[in-house]
Nucleic acid binder design. Structure first.
Lengths: 193, 193
DNA sequence: AAAATCTTCGAATATATTGGTCGAATATTC
DNA sequence: GAATATTCGACCAATATATTCGAAGATTTT
């Protein structure tokens, strides 16, 4: 009927909602069980611990982010649109993930390494994507980019800069404005005149 | 330097932020103290209990809501604009208050009476305001309202209907659209053709 | 259909958290 | 410098919470 893996996913989704709202510490196993309409002990049949659930949630969400970003790039043709789409989607979906980051900094230092590892991996992946995007743009003579690796790093740094407000506060009023401004500067820097 | 009443307000503001984010149960006195950068025991010099703080917060926020609504009405002249403004501001500010409602339903039934009383009082006040608004509009021959009390009740019911999504979910995507739609229907019903 | 295995859950537990207290220390006022 | 107001660290009792366990239902296998 419903296999183990599917059940784990159900737990991950339910738990994810609560984690993202209340953070790791303030989320209780009782709540997760209530959300799933199941006995609390049943969850322990599928997961070792609250931590394991949490880690699975982060992994799961990170995967969604990755898929959405890939889709965002594929959905348009021109290099400019690809970059623009990538940046937009990334900022939008990252907002969700940032809740988990906040959850971590809620004093639970044990998870720190785990999260940092995911983070580092995604930095690397993102850099590769950006590099490819820029390289293609340069090839098509749309971007004026000599060293795609170098410029990719610059773009990524800018993206990180945009992350910061999402990271520290719950809501940034003018994130959209900030985003458009940065895109203008960015394209001004790399577009072939 | 800083008197007792001012300190209480500081506590209320700090506590309010945390309450509105995590609800009554999940908010701890330690957090409030940390936010205030004070010893936890100091808070108890100004407040009897966590409950008292919570009730003060709700009262405080409700008061802000009332002031904002009054200002919204006064800021424009025409009856139509007054009503439109009122509805907009009310929905916007109610979103904040709804967090506290959620906090209550977080199983703590003891507070229920207290909140319900505030709620009932505000219903009465709002009805009076709406009634006055409609009556003035009718007087100026802008609205076609025979019985202002009756129509005010209808308008208020509509507003309650708009509240519901805010009440149950954290975020409603198309609340703005919903709001405009309802305003159209509303004015279609009461405007003098 | 009995044995074996898988899945669920109520109850129990050991531990951590948390609202609230107390008395002493420090600051302020008289 | 006595009296009063304010702060706070240490403490406590009550509660909440992550996790375990064993028994009971399902489901599959033999």
């Amino acid at each position: 009927m419903i296999n183990k893996e599917e059940f784990r996913e159900k737990v991950i989704i339910a738990a994810g909602q609560i984690f993202s709202r209340y953070g790791f510490r303030k989320t209780t196993m009782d709540e997760i069980a209530r959300e799933l309409k199941m006995g609390k002990s049943s969850i322990y049949y599928y997961f070792e611990s609250k931590e394991e659930i949490f880690e699975s949630v982060v992994l799961y969400e990170a995967n969604i982010l990755r898929n959405e970003l890939t889709a965002a790039i594929k959905s348009v043709e021109s290099p400019v649109e690809k970059v623009r789409n990538y940046v937009f989607v990334r900022m939008k979906t990252f907002e969700k993930l940032s809740n988990y980051y906040n959850a971590i900094f809620d004093k639970n230092l044990d998870h720190f390494d785990f999260i940092e590892n995911i983070r580092a991996r995604y930095d690397r992946e993102e850099l590769a994507i950006l590099r490819l995007l820029l390289w293609h743009g340069a090839r098509k003579k749309v971007f004026n980019v000599a060293n795609s690796e170098y410029t990719a790093l610059a773009v990524q740094t800018t993206l990180k800069g945009l992350e910061v407000p999402l990271f520290w506060k719950k809501k940034e009023e003018n994130i959209e404005k900030r985003l458009n401004a940065i895109l203008d500067v960015l394209f001004n820097g790399i577009l072939r005149k």
